[in-house]
Nucleic acid binder design. Structure first.
Lengths: 260, 260
DNA sequence: ATAAAATTGTCATCCAGATGACATCTCTGA
DNA sequence: TCAGAGATGTCATCTGGATGACAATTTTAT
């Protein structure tokens, strides 16, 4: 009864069904996008922000770009920051959206490497910028905060792993379905008023089809038509500039591989 | 001169050429695979291993699987542990190889979630297993070790980000080229004797074509033929069970998008 | 308010790579 | 040492999506 690591799809009967899909670690996503700021004690928050600088960004303002030397860590106060990378062929891949309270730019903290990615305001935003050395000594002085940071990074490792698996093995439709569910999960805090159905979920974020393509690793046209078919099937609808998932179950089927 | 975040490939002239590719953060890879154990002070190592349990694994033995409740963190003493995930359609995706000194299973440390991935010995291996609570208090007692952990997790976040970008935008050939270069970089410590050329690199790891396909998100057949063409072009050669990169430059061209 | 710029929708076309099917070749374990 | 399992090579075939090209909208700046 030795499970073979090199098993080909045929042998995978060992895997209990229904194990993945739906909430393939929903909690990971919330942890990965955890509100670092509000998880701190008031005194800690005070200490941290004391040595911070506040930056206001217009939509599309660039905070840093690949190749910049990195000297700061950031915390989102308000708005949304998009992290992405540009491949050698010019293709953009969106890696992450940072919502209020989230911390980012830590990856360069210890290694002291240059920035590897681009950070751009996805909408008018405000961020606190904290010098690396200040942040490092803050962590040193507050072990619980350091543990919190470890927790967040861990969740991100898991989340990125899931994204990787999806990219490597799902169809475009499934990848889009997953993406919408995830985005809905993390932006569920600020549910917009227009929700009608009981289990209707809101993806509270403005995204162009190109953005989605860049997250999902496909082309704009494919996104357009996939979205159209999801809309026709009644799974999602468009509410002033953003999506609502009207029938989450429909999407869940997709990402479980049922053709339904 | 405002850089547009939503730029389409055409506009990407802003990106200075030659910026990516080659050593898209070589140091990230070594950091991500950092030897946690040997980076500790002797006293710390003693403390840590004092509360550890040593496990011997035969090739293909399973350390844990998705769904298991997680109560331990592991450090590789010897051998190599493969971390992978199985998608709902049965496809396997290899996420990581853990080499001696590397720590893994930390992602579940803080969140206390169940395991999300599979860990299997890629060859006869020996690992230290440390209970989560012990490890957590170890980190609490040794702030520098905690910072080290943050550094490793950060590097992994960056490394996973790179993998993601590659998967989303490179051709299979480029993905394989990148993979080989990365594996060579991290297994370069134990360069095998058979190296001939000055800049010949050794991928010191036994991999089947299926394994490579599982890392690169493609099919076994495609890997077989891509590898064959790389071999014909003289870029790589096969030395008793593993690869050597005879002409690293050839691979670098590929991953920079030059058709050469 | 209006022109310019971005975003969406919809095709018809093309191709990288997946699939399935075999024929070797090479290990591994009894 | 030998059989069975696993790994490689090599096809011929098929298809999910990428690409390029426009027209129709919607947004954004002036």
């Amino acid at each position: 009864m030795n499970y073979s690591a090199r098993a080909t799809p045929m042998d995978q009967t060992v895997i209990e069904p229904g194990f993945f899909g739906l909430d393939e670690g929903d909690s990971d996503w919330s942890n990965a996008h955890a509100n670092f700021l509000s998880s701190l004690l008031p005194a800690e928050t005070r200490d941290l922000l004391a040595c911070s600088q506040c930056l206001d960004l217009k939509s599309r303002d660039q905070l840093f770009r690949a190749g910049d030397s990195s000297d700061s860590v950031y915390v989102v106060a308000d708005g949304c920051i998009r992290l992405f990378q540009v491949a050698s062929n010019g293709r953009e891949t969106i890696l992450w959206f940072n919502f209020p309270g989230e911390i980012f730019g830590i990856a360069e903290l210890v290694s002291g490497n240059d920035r590897q990615i681009y950070a751009v305001a996805n909408e008018p935003s405000r961020v606190y910028s904290i010098r690396q050395r200040d942040f490092a000594s803050f962590l040193g002085a507050h072990p619980e905060a350091a543990m919190k940071a470890i927790g967040i990074l861990s969740a991100r490792v898991r989340a990125l792993g899931q994204m990787l698996v999806g990219l490597a093995s799902d169809s475009v439709e499934a990848r889009i379905a997953k993406l919408l569910m995830r985005l809905a999960a993390i932006s569920s805090g600020n549910k917009c008023a227009a929700a009608s159905g009981a289990d209707e979920m809101c993806v509270n974020l403005r995204l162009t089809h190109q953005d989605i393509a860049n997250m999902v690793g496909s082309s704009r046209q494919t996104v357009t038509s996939t979205l159209a078919s999801l809309r026709n099937s009644g799974a999602i609808r468009t509410v002033s500039q953003h999506f609502h998932i009207t029938q989450p179950d429909r999407l869940r089927c997709l990402l479980n591989g049922y053709v339904a």
